[in-house]
Amino acid sequence: MKKIGIYLFDEVEVLDFAGPYEVFSVAYKDRFEDKLFDVTTISETGDMISARNGLQVMPDTSLDQAPNTDVVIIPGGQGAREKEAYNEKLIKWLRACQDSAEVIASVCTGALVLANAGLLDGKRATTHWGSYDRLAAFSSVDVQHNVKFVDEGSIVTSGGISAGINMAFHLMEKFEGKEAVTQTARWMEYDL
């Protein structure tokens, strides 16, 4: 079973984290028999966060207590642009995750966090269309426009908000195959 860690913070865009969370949480090998993914939510301190538009979310754990995961997902939102992209504790943690995680991924402006951590140096990446210029400010990032996601192997970035769902299905196919994607999308009534 693959372990997924999703980082949460104040002013995180709700669908940025909830979309991938839903995709991975409802994926089973056999309907309700063998769960394919174990999803953990993580915040800097483990305390409740206030997502975009006031949604209160209680993460499972803190950065200090976070388990090793196969996939780390950094969502975006106003909090990513204004604070998390410059959060030294988060950036240090992400750099350390490179040694243990198979994939570090971002949704929307979460790409700015990855870029500031140096994880996008020399790579193709995408983000929300409204932040292409912000991402391009990191001169060694080759910003891809008008795509849902960009897969650079151990780094995967996705466009804005709902594109995180497409990216989650892409990662699911990478780990578990097309049939898992088909079954999960059908269960969610999601049009691939």
Results as ranks from 00 to 15, higher is better:
Glu102Val: 06
Ala111Glu: 03
Asp133Ser: 12
Gln144Leu: 08
Val156Arg: 09
Trp129Leu: 01
Asn116Leu: 03
Gly159Ser: 08
Ile161His: 02
Gln144Gly: 02
Asp121Leu: 14
Gln98Lys: 11
Ile161Val: 15
Val141Gly: 08
Phe149Gln: 11
Arg134Asn: 15
Val103Tyr: 12
Phe138Pro: 02
Asp151Ile: 03
Gly130Glu: 14
Ala137Ile: 05
Arg134Thr: 11
Ile161Tyr: 05
Ala115Lys: 12
Ala115Trp: 07
Asp142Tyr: 04
Gly118Ser: 04
Gly110Ile: 01
Cys97Gln: 15
Asp151Ala: 01
Cys97Met: 14
Gly118Thr: 03
Leu119His: 09
Ala137Tyr: 10
Lys123Leu: 14
Ser154Tyr: 13
Thr157Pro: 00
Phe149Trp: 14
Ile155His: 03
Ala96Glu: 15
Arg95Cys: 10
Ser139His: 10
Ser154Gln: 13
Glu152Thr: 03
Asp133Thr: 00
Gly118Met: 01
Arg134Gln: 15
Ala117Asp: 03
Thr109Asp: 04
Phe138Tyr: 15
Ala136Thr: 12
Glu152Asp: 08
Lys148Gln: 11
Trp129Val: 00
Glu102Gly: 05
Asp99Arg: 02
Gln98Gly: 14
Thr126Ala: 07
Ile155Met: 00
Thr157Lys: 11
Asn116Asp: 11
Asp121Ile: 14
Gly153Leu: 04
Asn116Ile: 09
Gly122Lys: 12
Leu112Ser: 10
Ser139Leu: 00
Ala101Trp: 05
Val107Arg: 01
Arg95Ser: 09
Ala117Ile: 07
Ala136Gln: 14
Arg95Phe: 00
Ile104Glu: 02
Ser100Phe: 10
Val103Asp: 11
Leu119Trp: 07
Lys148Val: 13
Ser154Glu: 11
Thr157Asn: 04
Gly122Thr: 12
Leu112Tyr: 08
Ser131Gly: 10
Ala137Asp: 15
Gly153Thr: 06
Val156Leu: 07
Lys148Trp: 11
Leu135Ser: 06
Val103Glu: 09
Ala125Thr: 02
Glu152Pro: 01
Asp133His: 08
Thr127Arg: 09
Ala101Cys: 14
Cys97His: 07
Ser139Thr: 12
Ser140Tyr: 06
Ala115Glu: 00
Val147Ser: 00
Asp99Leu: 04
Ser140Val: 01
Ser158Asn: 06
Val150Ser: 07
Arg95Ile: 15
His128Val: 12
Glu102Asn: 07
Leu114Ser: 10
Ser158Ile: 00
Gly130Asp: 13
Val150Met: 05
Tyr132Ile: 08
Arg134Asp: 15
Leu114Lys: 13
Cys97Phe: 05
Ser140Asp: 10
Leu120Lys: 13
Thr127Ala: 08
